[in-house]
Nucleic acid binder design. Structure first.
Length: 257
DNA sequence: ATGGTTGTTGGACAA
């Protein structure tokens, strides 16, 4: 089963790119972030024509996550547990083809001296608690998304320049590591232990893509039962180089068995 | 030092 994650930066503005990528990469499951629309505005017909079922956790203008799946989608959860007052559409979870998946759009957190940074850290605490609960079930699951965390300096084109940014700060990285150390496997890092520069995001500004100055902030985190089935994982750089591209590019993995 | 980009939306705000 091929599972991919992609921050599309508006599913409506990106629809031609999304459709051509679905047709060529042909993931069984696609986890989308920053769809920037409510469910009523989601292009479900066009994507359905390619054979995908759709579950949307939408929001007007900002955020928004979705699950696209060739197998039927069951048991959908539309919010990360732990804060009933949080109305930002950043988490959707479901079971597809016997595997639990989640599409995660973790808060960016900048600027770090604003309420956005403690919101990010609090969100990561809630993710920690929920991952702990999921691991207790001892089943295969894949948590894919834009984590807005570059785990190590080698995941950043200029670590010194980014050291104080909410995506790279030591406290951000420590909380991300705490989640992973509960027992998850970073699929890309597991299969490419010595790779550097496997970026998944390049800013639109200053020719960052043309200079290959990016960050690795989109991840597929696997439960032990999913990691046991992990066969392949890679970054698909092709969509980032196209016209009207998202500033992120897809990451995908293949589970056997 | 400033501006450099894209999307939503029709002025900032988010990234």
């Amino acid at each position: 089963m091929k599972i991919a994650t992609w921050n599309v930066n508006s599913v409506r503005a990106r629809l031609p790119r999304v459709l051509e990528w679905l047709a060529s990469a042909a993931p069984d499951v696609a986890l989308l972030q920053e769809i920037k629309t409510v469910a009523e505005g989601f292009p479900e017909l066009e994507i359905g024509d390619l054979g995908y079922n759709v579950a949307v956790c939408g929001q007007k203008s900002y955020n928004g996550v979705a699950i696209l799946s060739k197998p039927p989608i069951e048991d959908v959860l539309m919010r990360l547990p732990g804060d009933d007052a949080d109305d930002q559409a950043r988490y959707i979870e479901a079971i597809v083809g016997g595997v639990r998946v989640a599409s995660i759009y973790l808060p960016n957190g900048n600027p770090v001296d604003s309420p956005k940074f403690p919101y990010k850290l609090g969100w990561m605490e809630r993710l920690y608690d929920h991952v702990g609960d999921l691991l207790g079930i001892e089943e295969a699951f894949v948590l894919g998304g834009d984590y807005n965390v570059a785990p190590e300096d080698r995941d950043v084109y200029d670590p010194a320049a980014w050291a104080g940014d909410a995506l790279c700060r030591p406290d951000t990285r420590a909380r991300y590591r705490a989640v992973v150390h509960l027992g998850l496997t970073d699929a890309y890092r597991a299969l490419h232990p010595d790779a550097a520069g496997a970026y998944t995001f390049w800013d639109y500004q200053k020719g960052r893509w043309q200079r290959d100055e990016g960050l690795r902030i989109d991840h597929l985190l696997l439960s032990p039962q999913a990691a046991d089935r992990l066969e392949t994982c890679d970054v698909d750089r092709d969509p980032r180089g196209r016209d009207k591209a998202s500033d992120h590019t897809p990451v995908w993995c293949e589970l056997g068995g």
